[in-house]
Amino acid sequence: MNPFLTLAVAIGAEISATLALKAADGLTKPGPTLVVVLGYGTALWLMSTSMDMLPIGVVYAIWAGVGMVGAALGGALLFGEVVNVAMIAGIAIIACGIAVLAAAQVQH
């Protein structure tokens, strides 16, 4: 399997788990709590699989950057959290950094 696709699915699982963590209300709601456990378990397994094929620095940088952006945007969409100019600028900067890392890995 393509390591970047594996990493993308891992990040999707991590973002889902993170958003479910907020919805789980201190892990007191069974449905969201189950999503948290399954999501983080799946995310870590797939992240470790992608590390078999990609350098750890690239995997972790993409994981952290895309995960943060996804969680921030998901929080805004699902929970009405504030999106402001500084947040948008930060997301744009992170997206540029991720693009540079991904391009550097493809060339190597």
Rank of each mutant, 00 (worst) to 15 (best):
W45C: 10
L54N: 07
G12M: 09
L34F: 10
A76G: 02
M51V: 09
I15V: 15
G12V: 06
P32R: 04
S16I: 14
M68I: 12
G26H: 01
W45H: 13
I91R: 01
A8D: 08
G65K: 04
M51T: 11
G75S: 06
L5A: 10
V58N: 14
G67E: 03
A102H: 15
F4I: 11
I56L: 14
P30M: 00
G57C: 12
T6Y: 03
A17T: 01
F4A: 08
W63S: 07
L5W: 08
W45R: 12
V35F: 04
P55A: 07
Y40T: 06
E81D: 12
L78R: 14
F79N: 04
A103S: 15
P32Y: 06
T49M: 13
A92W: 10
A8Q: 09
L44T: 03
H108E: 13
G26Y: 04
V69D: 03
E14W: 07
V36M: 00
L21I: 07
I94A: 09
I88Y: 05
H108C: 12
T18S: 06
A104P: 14
L54W: 12
V36N: 03
T28W: 04
F4L: 12
G57K: 13
I98F: 11
G65W: 05
T49I: 15
A95G: 09
A8L: 13
V58F: 15
A104Y: 14
S50I: 09
N84G: 03
A95F: 12
I94V: 13
A13K: 02
P30H: 04
G80D: 00
A71F: 12
V85L: 13
V35P: 04
T42P: 08
G31D: 05
